[in-house]
């Protein structure tokens, strides 16, 4: 009998601590499955961050470091200096990358650091219990925007992919969503491309994943998928914002 679906060696065989319906698990899996398929698990170094991603090192079956809040791109820049030939990636949420870590992500992109950033945008702080993030949508209720986010109080949600795409050193920027099988397959292709950019030493690569947070959105897993599709995708359009010419992607 030929198995049609198996565990990937890229994930440890422990249950994740992610809430039911959260798409972190899908993002974890497609990144690690891609490294497995590339035969690179033993040559990869991952950098987790603070937030729900803090536990990623328990699940991602490669050498891992857990960095301080927002600092993963600086940490990965340091790793790159000592390990010039390894595949290096960061895994960061939107509180981490888009709020406290803006200096580190902008300057890593600006230097054209040769590692991949996997950015989970679920429009909220998950681990700390559902506070407003820079990515929280206008009108979205959170524990720190109880009447809904307003432009007057907090400005408009930050579009990280569009912002980083303006930086010369950032050569591959794509936004994907984890709301449907077709989008998940597209997301995996984006992950593969990001690693190809790194292998070919072309520059900084980031994939932004629109993700769900059912627990803190106060929605069921299926309603969360619907909310992502109807609210996040219109504000955060999917697609490739930047791609290097001559990228070989097999």
């Amino acid at each position: 009998m030929t198995p049609v679906f198996t565990y990937t060696k890229g994930m440890t065989e422990v249950s994740t601590s992610y809430c039911p319906g959260c798409t972190h698990g899908i993002a974890n899996r497609i990144i690690m499955e891609t490294l497995d398929e590339m035969g690179k698990l033993g040559d990869a170094i991952g950098v987790g961050s603070i937030g729900c991603s803090v536990t990623a090192h328990q699940f991602m079956n490669v050498d891992m470091l857990e960095s301080a809040h927002g600092r993963a791109p600086a940490v990965a820049s340091g790793i790159r200096r000592a390990q010039p030939d390894k595949l290096i990636f960061t895994y960061q949420g939107d509180g981490d990358l888009a709020s406290i870590g803006t200096a580190e992500i902008v300057h890593a992109a600006h230097r054209g650091e040769k590692f991949c950033v996997f950015f989970i945008n679920n429009a909220i702080y998950g681990m700390t219990g559902g506070q407003m993030a820079p990515t929280t949508l206008i009108g979205q209720r959170t524990t720190t925007s109880p009447e809904g986010r307003t432009v007057e109080q907090a400005g408009r949600p930050i579009r990280i992919s569009e912002m980083l795409a303006t930086i010369d050193g950032a050569v591959y920027i794509e936004r994907v969503a984890l709301d449907s099988p077709a989008h998940v397959r597209a997301a995996k292709k984006a992950v593969r491309k990001a690693f190809a950019v790194q292998e070919q030493k072309l520059g900084f690569a980031m994939v932004e994943f629109l993700s769900t947070c059912p627990s803190n959105w106060g929605l069921s897993p299926s309603d969360s998928i619907k909310w992502l599709r109807e609210n996040m995708i219109p504000y955060y359009p999917l697609g490739v914002f930047k791609e290097p010419e001559g990228l070989k992607n097999d």
């Binding site: 301080a68 940490v75 990965a76 340091g78 790793i79 000592a82 390990q83």
Partner: peptide, 10 residues
């Protein structure tokens, strides 16, 4: 934090 990463990588 670059120090942390670089030193953690040996």
């Amino acid at each position: 934090n670059m120090t942390y990463g670089c030193a953690a990588a040996g």
